[in-house]
Design a protein around this nucleic acid. Sequence first.
DNA 1: CACCATGTTCCTTG
DNA 2: CCAAGGAACATGGT
Length: 282
Amino acid sequence: MPELPEVEVLARHLRPALRGRTVRGVRVNRAKILQPTSEREFKRALIGTKFKTLSRRGKYLLFDFQTAKKTVTVLGHLGMTGRMFIADKSEPLPKHAAVVLELDRGNFVFEDTRYFGRMTLDLAAVEKLGPEPWDEKFTAEIFRRELKRSRQPIKVKLLDQSLIAGVGNIYASEALFHARISPKLAANKLTLAQTEKLLRCVREVLAEAIDCGSTIPLNFSGGKKTDGLFYFGRAAGALDFYEERLLVYDRNGRPCVKCGTAVRRIVQAARSTFFCGRCQKV
DNA sequence: CACCATGTTCCTTG
DNA sequence: CCAAGGAACATGGT
């Protein structure tokens, strides 16, 4: 479930659920998820600590746990299929529960079928991130200056987390559609006006997704497939609510909502891109 | 069997 | 040194 909006919504749900909780024990079913932190190191650092705060940076979650002496920060990333939720201790763990924090009340479960996610004490990844989309210092001028250095298609650059943090494959296509810019346009060819518009659209698309997700009472504790997958309504077979919000993503061959032309799917940097060849000319 | 999937990192090539 | 492309990671859905 992982792009910036989903991670932000998850953080908002987890924060109150973790408030005041203490870590009594830690279970690791997939040590790979912790690397480069070792299982022993991870357990020793966390057992006995108390949850303090949770923040988001790009698609990463930063959990602060506290002992009398110091703060321990855990970096979480959902990869492609990761989910995090608080479950009653009586509930059976899902098949791919990678890490479980046994709390004084309930379990914090990190489940990830493909195990691409992370739960680690190594914070190096966040230091490589570019600015948050809403960072006021991240102006269109600065954005454009960075884009000038690359001839890669703009869609591919939007996925570069060191350029701007949090945009993923779905919202990259969506933002470009909103901005009426072709995903194939070379990054260094964007005009300042286009760059301004794109930055505005990235912000709008992400903000809208956060709003939308935040209004939904996610049930993270259940085993249902749809839990937490709020933007994947179609694949999860539910919520047409979402379907309407994604205007091009995963809509290959279906009519563009603005002009009726069939939405196209192309492959860029080994990832699907969806766009309208008529609305997104340049 | 084939192909697809919300992400990141590492390796190679130029 | 950098940019760019592709494979790898691991599992499941269609």
